[in-house]
Design a binder for these strands. Structure first.
Length: 592
DNA sequence: CGGCTTTGACCAGCGC
DNA sequence: GCGCTGGTCAAAGCCG
């Protein structure tokens, strides 16, 4: 534009100069006229006029072009303004859409969580049917909804008696009960432990065809004896964890990832790299229903010395496996109907606490782990260690189905003081608080992460211990009986408790040093002493812990800097006297 | 450059 | 036998 204007200006100037030339020429011509009367005056005059006209035309054209260009410029500017406005409008729209999306997402998750709570009662039973063997250790604290509880109680008023007839081993020290699952709930839910089951099958709307159920029922007895012993036993740990993988003290190398059926969350496969020949594998997968839950399934036994921080989980899994194997063998020996071989049956269903222990499950009953899942391959006996806080819904599941395999459910949730020793907090502290704990690392590798948690960030779980307190003594008595009756259970309980203590303590000792260890002790101790209202739950803890205190292995753990529990918190009251109930012969089960 | 992760391909088991 | 699914392998890419 500027160049054009420049050019046009130049032309104008040249034009004016030419005009001047014309004038001068006119004067010259007039002079020539006077001096030279007979020259070619006529021709020169015509040419001059044509030049003048041409110049004028050019000038007009230039001016008109200039006007057009200015108009175009204005138009372009106007268009740009319109586009800018539209841009801003779109931006606003985008922002609004994003906000709406986020709000809707939040609502969606809320609804999902609510639905999960209500659904969890159903699908758990599915697992037990197809799962060859299932031992569930539920260490999460639970808050049971009154409605569910009432419904549960109504439906299974006879459940306690049924439990006595069952061979399942169920221990619940919280407001949760493991109840025989209904026949139609053969399969587990998606948050499943070991197999991370299909989401579709978790849907409450899904009902198995009767034929399928019958088929499953028929074939169950035949499969029991064959499968459970042959296949590798797995230990599944469900815990709330923000990190990609649970920090268990071992070194893992990821060797594969796959989208499992029914769960959009990919399942990652890790193998132990502490020793090249170590056969231990683990699978890690997010629970589809609750993305905060990380399901880790361990398989195999380490053939090498483990770091201190890794011994806890290894001990837990090992003990659970041994317990499961023992259960399966017992069930095989004892037969389906008789309890003669192991006439141990303890049931204590209290308000807020359920403690049942029974053996030789009848084929008609099954203790399903409400949040557990069945492997579609039905090839691996699985032990589920449930460290989530979703136990309530799981525990509100209903009795019903006939267990094909011995299933053991251990639930200690309420036995831990939620404020000070609540297991979920502990695990979250070490495994779940990844973002806070591992910020220094930037990322969280899949191996040997520092299991130290930010104790200051321990969340105070809603606690209903007051409700349980009046019933605690009774439940503890039942627990005492159960523990005294089943050595394997003792070992599992011990290992589970050890895992809490050991994992945290070991990790502290190994990776962080005494400084944080001491702070952890202080934290737990303080919270414990400052919440006398939870004395009952402390007793619950003490029940297991006091026994542990007498075990050599636990003592060794304590000596190893793992004595994180204040002595009082781990001691049973004399009235409960859990420790005395535990047979000394079973102490060796803690040696893992 | 070595170790780890990613990811598609491959294999085996199981059900129909 | 075929298809589905879980589990593993291994080449390529990434990262410190």
């Amino acid at each position: 534009m500027e160049e054009r204007s420049m050019k046009s200006t130049g032309k104008e100037e040249s034009t004016s100069m030419e005009i001047n030339k014309e004038e001068r020429g006119k004067h010259i011509e007039e002079e020539e006229k006077s001096s030279m009367p007979f020259s070619a005056n006529g021709n020169s005059l015509g040419i001059t006029k044509q030049v003048t006209l041409t110049m004028e035309k050019n000038t007009v054209d230039l001016l008109s072009r200039r006007k057009n260009q200015e108009d175009q410029l204005k138009l372009a500017e106007a268009e740009m303004g319109v586009v800018k406005e539209e841009n801003e409008r779109l931006k606003m729209l985008l922002e609004r859409t994003v906000k709406e999306y986020q709000s809707l997402q939040m609502q969606f998750f809320d609804i999902l969580q609510q639905e999960n709570k209500s659904k969890d009662t159903v699908p758990s039973h599915r697992q037990a049917k197809e799962e060859p063997e299932l031992v569930s250790l539920s260490l999460g604290i639970t808050s049971t909804e009154p409605k569910k509880e009432d419904k549960k109680n109504n439906n299974f008023s006879n459940g306690q008696e049924e439990e006595k007839l069952n061979g399942a081993l169920s221990l619940g020290l919280q407001d949760c009960r493991f109840e025989p699952s209904s026949t139609e709930h053969v399969r587990n839910n998606s948050c499943s432990n070991n197999s991370f089951e299909e989401q579709k099958e978790e849907e409450p709307t899904e009902i198995w065809p009767p034929s399928k159920i019958l088929k499953t029922m028929k074939s169950r007895d035949e499969e029991v004896s064959q499968q459970s012993q042959v296949k590798k036993t797995r230990v599944s740990v469900r815990a709330r964890c923000d990190t990609p993988t649970m920090i268990d003290g071992c070194q893992w190398r990821k060797y594969g990832q796959k989208i499992a059926k029914g769960n959009p969350c990919p399942r990652a496969y890790y193998r132990c790299t502490v020793s090249p020949s170590c056969p231990v594998r683990k699978q890690v997968q997010r629970c589809f229903n609750d993305m905060s839950i990380l399901i880790t399934t361990y398989e195999g036994k380490h053939n090498h010395p483990l770091p201190v921080s890794a011994t806890a989980m290894a001990s837990t899994t090992s003990a659970a496996v041994s317990m499961l194997q023992s259960q399966s063998s017992t069930s095989l020996q004892g037969g389906l109907n008789t309890s003669a071989s192991a006439p141990i049956s303890t049931s204590s269903n209290l308000n807020g606490f359920n403690f049942t222990l029974s053996q030789n499950p009848s084929p008609q009953q099954l203790y399903g782990l409400p949040n557990s899942s069945i492997s579609t391959l039905n090839s691996h006996p699985t032990i589920t260690l449930d460290l989530t806080t979703n136990a309530p819904s799981r525990l509100s599941s209903s009795f019903s189905s006939a267990p094909r395999y011995p299933s053991t459910s251990l639930n200690f949730s309420s036995s831990f003081s939620p404020y000070s020793l609540e297991p979920n907090n502990i695990f979250q502290t070490h495994w779940n608080k990844g973002p806070t704990s591992y910020n220094n690392h930037g990322t969280v590798p899949a191996y040997n992460e520092n299991p130290i948690g930010n104790l200051n960030s321990i969340e105070k779980q809603p606690f209903q211990e007051q409700l349980y307190e009046p019933y605690m003594k009774e439940s503890i008595v039942a627990a005492t009986k159960a523990i005294a009756s089943n050595p394997k259970f003792q070992s599992v309980l011990a290992a589970a408790l050890t895992s809490y203590v050991g994992t945290s303590g070991g990790g502290v000792k190994e990776n962080q040093g005494a400084c944080e260890s001491s702070s952890m002790k202080l934290k737990w101790g303080e919270s414990h002493t400052m919440n006398p209202i939870y004395s009952s739950s402390q007793n619950g803890i003490g029940c297991g812990s006091s026994y542990l205190n007498k075990s050599s292995s636990f003592n060794s753990l304590k000596q190893g800097g793992l004595a994180l529990f204040p002595p009082n918190s781990l001691q049973l009251s004399a009235s409960n006297n859990c420790a005395s109930a535990a047979p000394p012969d079973n102490r060796d089960h803690f040696k893992l």
